[in-house]
Nucleic acid binder design. Sequence first.
DNA 1: AAATTGACGTGACCGGAGTCACAAAACGGC
DNA 2: GCCGTTTTGTGACTCCGGTCACGTCAATTT
Lengths: 232, 232
Amino acid sequence: MQVTPELLSRFPLLKPLPHEALEQLAPHAELVRYARRAVALEAGVREGKVCFLFEGRLQGVGFTIDGREVGLYFVEPGDFCGELALFDDNPQPEFVIATTAASVVFVARNPLREVMLRNGLVSNIVGRKLAERVRQMTVQRTLLGLSNIPQRVCGQLYLLINEARRKDDSGEIVNPPTHKEIAIMLNLSRETVTRVFQALQSRRIIRRDGPGRLIVADLASLRHFAEGGEEL
Amino acid sequence: MQVTPELLSRFPLLKPLPHEALEQLAPHAELVRYARRAVALEAGVREGKVCFLFEGRLQGVGFTIDGREVGLYFVEPGDFCGELALFDDNPQPEFVIATTAASVVFVARNPLREVMLRNGLVSNIVGRKLAERVRQMTVQRTLLGLSNIPQRVCGQLYLLINEARRKDDSGEIVNPPTHKEIAIMLNLSRETVTRVFQALQSRRIIRRDGPGRLIVADLASLRHFAEGGEEL
DNA sequence: AAATTGACGTGACCGGAGTCACAAAACGGC
DNA sequence: GCCGTTTTGTGACTCCGGTCACGTCAATTT
């Protein structure tokens, strides 16, 4: 499906661009809807495009030799992924999979790269984004270092809330990731995540609110457990 | 200690720069020698400099809340780290520690950033480097997904060889990381790494050769185990 | 409405890596 | 060479998260 410059301008990365640049990009952009579990970007392939998420949620996923899934990051609406293609010609390192029904805008790599090189501002933003990704991966990797497993899950939950809406002492996550999706982010089994969630629910720290809404009622306690102040 | 433009030009990143750019950078560069275990870059601090490794080996290291070390990456001579400072103003996310006696060249962030912005080539190289780091972190994270632990160690060893010298069917690692340094890269205990090394040595796959030289005699077998073709 | 699917929940069992406690060896400084 | 320090080597024990095997439930499909 075709894309208008207005649609492109709704993404923070592209918003600062002058209108003519957006008009230049629009013909090389494409709106695609994915069902849950569909593959948006494939690992090992020169995709030659950057993926902007309009709605839904994506997850970067790797696979070990023995077929085990490895969760790398989540992508929230307004954000983008596959941006490594803007820096080199190497193939996409990981899969990007829709964890919910999602609509994304693909922008071809070369035109976007040209715009980026010509416009220092965008260049800066993309660079900052990449730096941010490194920071995020570092935090995620550090989470895996925690030997106390409930703590690890609480830490992940806490990160998820910061990405999403967040009030003073409570927060909510709409369309939360499934237990399995969290499990592969943390190198845990799905059952273990379920058990930790049960423990958190019985302590009234988190609560399900209908389908697709997870409410964190006691953010302070969650942080407490995430920081290892007390064992779950 | 002061730094000459010639010294700077010995780093692949800076080599393509015109001589006047190097002369511009040299006054803002500093040569520092570190003893083993010294901290070159500190986490949580705006270091405001990029660290080029001249000789020795560095390791990016994080710490969990409970004080456990987390190994992130190794830096080999000619390479650099702390480059996130070129993209944003946020503090350095992880520690960088000398795993052997090392000499490094610090280049102040701002002058280097200016040179980078003026010289598209350097800009490209730094961008590619950052992209490469994301790829490397992805691979490293995928290693952690392996539930067979000896396999994980073999995979790491294999990666280390690729970074270093490598012949047809054997390779050597000079000043190899200690077992503990490998252990924190893989979320394992030091003892477990030792035991896997013992198993590999008894099978004549690896061999110590004097101090500071590890020889991989049978690279094919190592890869075999790394890929899970057989259990150790 | 029945059937299928996938997510979630839960118990029992087991293996294997962490931990602890040493000993031995290698290294580095003097 | 000598001595303190670090690294490596090794056994025994413990424990806890993975695995397996279910059951339940809600959403979608047919």
